[in-house]
Structures are given as C-alpha cells and as structure tokens.
Design a protein around this nucleic acid. Structure first.
Lengths: 127, 127
DNA sequence: CCTACTGTATCAGAACAATAATACACTTGG
DNA sequence: CCAAGTGTATTATTGTTCTGATACAGTAGG
C-alpha cells in the first residue's frame, strides 16, 4: 500500500503518505477500526522520520479519516453512514462530473481516466 | 489556462505551474513553437514571484518540453506522441487521486465512482 | 504490576520553496 | 541604432519540510 512513496517527488512526504491512506479508504481497502501501523513502524518501513508520519496522521485526523489514540495506536474512523445508497450514488455522479470537466479542460480523455481509476482501485472485479 | 494555481496546496507553486504546461502540451493544446508568456508576464498573471515561474520553466526545459531563449522568450518544443500519451496518463492518475480523496471525505466508495464513470462515459464514448 | 508498546512534545539544524529587490545580458521591432 | 522586452543571476529574508535526538505520557498484555 505504501509502494509509491517517492523522496524525490516535489510533493511533501507527509502529503504522499496521507494521500495513499485517503485513497485506500475510498477504495474500501481500509475500513472502520482498521489499525494502522504505528508511527515508528511506518517510519521504519518507509525509511522516513517518525515526525513525518505523525504529520501525515495528524492531517488525516483533522480531516476525520483516522483517530489517534495515545498509547493504543491509530485507527481508521467510520465514514458517515448516514449517507444512504441513493445519496452516495448521486454524490459519486457529481464527483465524476467534476473530474470529467476538469479533465476536459486539460485535454485528458475519459478512457485515460477510466484506466487510471481501475489502476487505483486495483480492479479485478470489472471489465 | 492558469486559473487554478493554489498557494495553499502542499504541491509547490513551481510544480503546479509546470504541471499545467506539461498537460497542456500532452493534450495538444500547446504545440511546437508556441510562445509561452514571459517570466514577468506569467508571474504577474499568477501573482507569483518571477523566480517561481523561472523555476517552473527550467524544470520543463530539463524535461525537454520547452526551450528558453535568452532575450527572446520561452517556446514549446516538439514532443513525441508516445511521450504525450504517457503524460496524459500521468495527468489522469492525478485527477483520479484527487477525486478519490474527495470521495473518501464524503463516504463515497470506489465502486460507486466506477459505476458513475461508466454511466458518464457510456453516454458519450461510443462513436 | 510493569514492561513494552503506543502517541505527544520539544529542540536544533539542513535543505528546499517562495518572496523581494536589483542588476546584467541578449533579441527584436520600430 | 536603441529602447523595450526577454531570460539570467545575485543576495537577503521568511516560512515549510524533513531529519535526528531525546524525553514524556497513556495503554495493554503477560
């Protein structure tokens, strides 16, 4: 899951880490209650300073994605279950339309987006 | 073309600027020989320091996208179709990741997005 | 209980990002 | 030609990112 951290990228490390976790949550890879690696553990895995992982976790906490429990660990929080299926689908359509209009502005076509989405979701269940 | 530079984004300004131009070239919006805005001009438009624009242009020069001519200006260089394709795919991946992050905040999962994207593309893409 | 694990909090320093103000050097058009 | 516009370069200053080291404080399992 953290195979795309790149120290040479202009995007800050803490942002790359937070980004991967956000996407994993949206993809359903991480669900409520999931115990994330400890600060020191993830820092060691990524060969990064613990403070950098803390910064990523804190950002995710501000955004409501995770909960940091002192002494216990960091856990994925439940996502607004009040959103029922119909509403979710409407929300999804809006998000997709926003992305499509932005893509059109940039000249990126729908098939490229489709390929990229499948890649992010680790698609095996869809053709 | 440069209407969405965000000073608060964790992505450096010079990288946002370079990214815009890269995608525009890959999309064919900017073609070989196109005269880009001058350093001072673009800096004024974006309300950014000229040195920041220079940094973006220099990065694009290293990557072969543009040529800086002392006293004359900055011009788009010819890019192979393969390379353009690669850049479009990279741009698509970024857009998708942004969408996934936003989706996670709203509680929309990846499958909903895939369904919604299929629906949007289905109504437009068979020709 | 108590040890090992967790997150929390400092501090100092290096490297990078961005700004501001100036000055220099090259190219082009009138 | 030469003035206006171009990229190039320098210096100084501020803030962010990332590291390293160190210490403190809460939690849970044996």
């Amino acid at each position: 899951m953290f195979d795309r951290i790149d120290p040479r990228s202009p995007t800050p490390l803490y942002e790359q880490i937070a980004g991967r976790i956000r996407v994993a949550v949206a993809a359903g890879e991480l669900t409520e209650g999931h115990h994330l690696p400890s600060v020191r553990q993830l820092a060691a895995t990524l060969r990064v300073n613990p403070a950098t992982v803390v910064q990523a976790y804190r950002e995710l906490e501000r955004e409501g994605f995770v909960e940091l429990k002192h002494g216990a660990g960091t856990f994925v929080r439940g996502i607004s279950e009040e959103r029922k299926k119909g509403e979710r689908i409407r929300g999804a359509a809006e998000l997709v339309q926003e992305m499509l209009s932005e893509a059109a502005r940039l000249g990126v076509d729908g098939q490229d987006l489709r390929t990229a989405l499948d890649r992010e979701l680790g698609s095996v269940s869809h053709e």
